[in-house]
């Protein structure tokens, strides 16, 4: 408990210090609870998610960093490895491949990498996975693009 708090506090300071270090990631800690964080990540370029801003919710267990944070998308996203309804993310480093050397920041980076490189063979979103597995890249891209526009882009007046 104490260790996780100390570590999160240091990560918080790190984030504050390097705010401009990674413009694609904006990590914000909950005002009253250091075990709850949200992150805003920019969709990687040359993907259907480009131009979108996606919100992630972090819930950090007391055993952190020995056990991984729970992360899910708050913003709707059409991606093979993200559950369309719950936003749950299927990513090995958030499960069995977690290492205590990872930080919230590096998790964000991993999620951005996952957005750019979906793995349709372990899908949480079967529709999306099936489109990619059947080779319908165009179909996948247009669906993903549509949901990016709908959910992850600022509405234009």
């Amino acid at each position: 408990m104490q260790a996780s708090r100390a570590r999160l506090f240091k990560e918080y300071k790190e984030v504050q210090r390097e705010k401009s270090a990674d413009p694609d990631i904006q990590l914000v800690c909950d005002d009253s609870n250091i075990f709850k964080w949200t992150a805003l990540i920019k969709g990687p370029t040359e993907t259907p998610y480009e131009g979108g801003v996606f919100q992630l919710a972090f819930v950090i267990p007391e055993q952190y960093p020995l056990s991984p944070p729970q992360v899910r998308f708050l913003t709707k996203i059409f991606h093979p490895n993200v559950h369309f309804k719950t936003g749950e993310i299927c990513l090995d480093i958030l499960k069995n491949a977690w290492s205590p050397a990872w930080t919230l920041q590096s998790v964000c980076r991993a999620i951005i990498a996952l957005m750019a490189h979906p793995e349709p063979d372990s899908p949480l979103n079967c529709d999306s996975g099936n489109l990619l597995r059947s080779g319908d890249v165009r179909g996948f891209r247009s669906m993903a693009r549509m949901y990016t526009r709908l959910a992850a882009m600022p509405k234009k007046g």
Partner: peptide, 19 residues
């Protein structure tokens, strides 16, 4: 030997160094 593209240990080392 890290998985995927990212390397947490190196990231952290770099962070520590820059710090």
């Amino acid at each position: 030997i890290g998985p995927r593209k990212l390397d947490p240990a190196r990231d952290n080392a770099a962070a520590a160094e820059s710090l």
